[in-house]
């Protein structure tokens, strides 16, 4: 049994229908536990006070904003190379979710930045990169919406996603070059665990797991909708022929 079998819409629909409730339930559980733990059961930061607790939304959203694009890139490559329709549709389904994560990261960042840096917005390299990422998402979604034929749209957005990924990376380095920034270093990394102490670290991990599961659940749900929409279009086309 090969993994590619799930690229068949029927197999995908059968599997996703069974898996979706569990993923959605696990996402809700992780988010509730992580956020309640993080907001109410952790101490305030000695320097940043209670404002630090926004990391339980900010960090996972920012991570998933980038990961969603990477997932779209992989899905686009699979579509362009192997022509699996479901792959193209998952990329389409993931884009608005990724955009919303990007906007959450930007909004929570602004809410956090106001008390910490005294400003809602600064042209800091990380903030700027996320703003540019949001523009990439917007362009990608707009191109999907503008092209009528679904396979043409899938091809064009796939190419845009690949080229966009290269330019998004370039922009990241360009922006770093342009301004060294105020943003604190990575909150999370394997070699620098002391960045964030364990008290904050564990609820954060739970929240990240919750965001990942929420992303998977939303993409599954949206992909199911896209497949149904494609099927509807196919049936309508068939009616017209008759």
């Amino acid at each position: 049994m090969s993994l590619w079998e799930y690229a068949n819409p029927q197999k995908f629909m059968h599997l996703s229908r069974r898996v979706l409730p569990f993923v959605a339930g696990a996402a809700a559980l992780c988010l509730i536990v992580g956020l309640v733990w993080g907001f109410f059961a952790t101490p305030n930061d000695y320097k940043q006070g209670p404002t630090v607790k926004i990391i339980y939304l900010h960090v996972p959203a920012a991570m998933m904003a980038i990961n969603a694009w990477v997932m779209m890139l992989v899905a686009s490559l699979i579509w362009l190379i192997r022509r699996h329709h479901v792959s193209a549709l998952t990329a389409k389904a993931a884009a608005p979710v990724g955009l919303v994560f990007t906007l959450i990261a930007l909004a929570t960042g602004a809410l956090w930045g106001q008390p910490m840096w005294g400003t809602w917005w600064a042209w800091d390299p990380r903030l700027t990169s996320f703003l540019i990422l949001a523009l990439f998402y917007l362009g990608y979604i707009a191109l999907w919406a503008a092209v009528d034929d679904p396979d043409t749209a899938a091809d064009l957005t796939g190419i845009l996603c690949i080229v966009g990924s290269v330019f998004a990376l370039l922009s990241r380095y360009a922006v770093n070059f342009w301004n060294q920034g105020l943003h604190q270093g990575a909150s999370l990394s394997l070699d620098k665990e002391e960045n964030v102490s364990d008290v904050f670290w564990f609820p954060l991990l739970v929240c990240i797991a919750g965001f990942v599961l929420m992303f998977v659940a939303l993409v599954l749900l949206r992909t199911r909708t896209e497949i149904r929409a494609r099927r509807l279009a196919a049936l309508i086309a068939r009616e017209r022929m008759g």
Partner: peptide, 20 residues
């Protein structure tokens, strides 16, 4: 002229079948 309801290529196989 193509038979009524022939949708092109793998499109039909992929999206035309019965599923939930």
């Amino acid at each position: 002229k193509a038979r009524i309801g022939t949708v092109s290529g793998d499109f039909d196989a992929a999206f035309g079948g019965d599923f939930a």
